[in-house]
């Protein structure tokens, strides 16, 4: 089958337009990050006249970026793993059993996606404070508080995705494993999870990226030493001068690891989404 002229034109135009739209900001980010401040403050130039790596040295001094990086890494990794575990159990329950309250559970959990963050920001803070006063577990200003917040934020989508995924795994397989005498948990461990691996990867990536980008709750629930990159990056612009070259350098530094990781895992991500979403 050969493509018609129309198809070819459509493809070329689409790809050119979208490539420009995607690449221009990336180009600006990269080139600005290696321009001296003086050049950045004057009229824009696509090709840098002078090249300097100073912004990449200064970013670590202007703002404690390394600390924020570590915080983001810890918070997002732990939140992702814990939420995956919790979501696997919940999705397994929803997918394999019909029980009273099942509908209520799924509806409620999914509708939390509609909650405007502004509405429960302050109440959540207050609850954390009360827990602290009652139990001595510090949740405000600690990574723990942010971890449990983020892991809950990504739970609804994760449960929904995984439940869809588990539905697609034939029950006969569970039965076979159960006959082997390993029980429901054994079936989950030996049959369902291995078969759902792409789905798990996809959900994990989604969770990690969502946490990595969250701004609002991070700004209220963290204090100086526990702040994350989302907050740290904004501090460059509150300085005496807007160091656009440093901001771009820092943006690049915080983006590269996650972009690389994402692109490495994108095949699994797409595969996971396909199976989960088309139920």
């Amino acid at each position: 089958m050969r493509d018609t002229v129309g198809t070819k034109v459509f493809r070329v135009v689409t790809l050119v337009v979208l490539t420009l739209f995607t690449v221009i900001p990336l180009w600006v980010m990269i080139t600005t990050s290696i321009k001296p401040l003086g050049d950045v403050q004057n009229a824009f130039a696509w090709i840098p006249e002078h090249i300097t790596l100073e912004p990449y040295i200064h970013i670590w001094q202007t703002v404690p970026l390394a600390q924020y990086f570590l915080n983001s890494l810890i918070v997002c990794t732990v939140a992702t793993f814990v939420s995956l575990i919790i979501a696997v159990f919940a999705a397994y329950g929803v997918s394999r059993w019909r029980f009273r309250g099942r509908g209520a559970f799924t509806t409620t959990v999914l509708s939390t996606q509609m909650f405007p963050g502004v509405l429960f920001l302050l109440p959540l803070f207050l609850i954390f404070v009360n827990i602290d006063q009652a139990t001595g577990i510090q949740l405000v200003g600690t990574r723990l508080g942010l971890i449990i917040t983020y892991l809950t934020f990504v739970l609804p989508f994760s449960i929904w995705m995984l439940a869809g995924y588990f539905d697609g795994i034939p029950r006969d397989l569970d039965e076979a494993s159960k006959v082997d005498g390993t029980g429901a948990m054994g079936a989950l461990w030996h049959v369902v999870l291995p078969a759902a691996r792409p789905g798990l990867v996809a959900v994990g990536i989604y969770s990690f990226m969502t946490s990595w980008g969250e701004v609002l709750f991070a700004s209220v629930l963290t204090t100086g030493p526990t702040q994350t990159l989302a907050i740290g990056l904004q501090q460059y612009s509150t300085q005496i001068n807007v160091y656009w070259n440093q901001i771009m350098a820092a943006s690049l530094v915080v983006s590269v690891p996650i972009v690389v990781a994402f692109l490495l895992l994108q095949r699994s991500f797409v595969a996971g989404l396909t199976a989960g979403a088309i139920k």
């Binding site: 302050l122 803070f125 207050l126 404070v129 602290d132 006063q133 405000v140 209220v220």
Partner: peptide
Amino acid sequence: RIQTAVSSGQ
């Protein structure tokens, strides 16, 4: 930050 401190006593 002051708002959260005022409202929570923390």
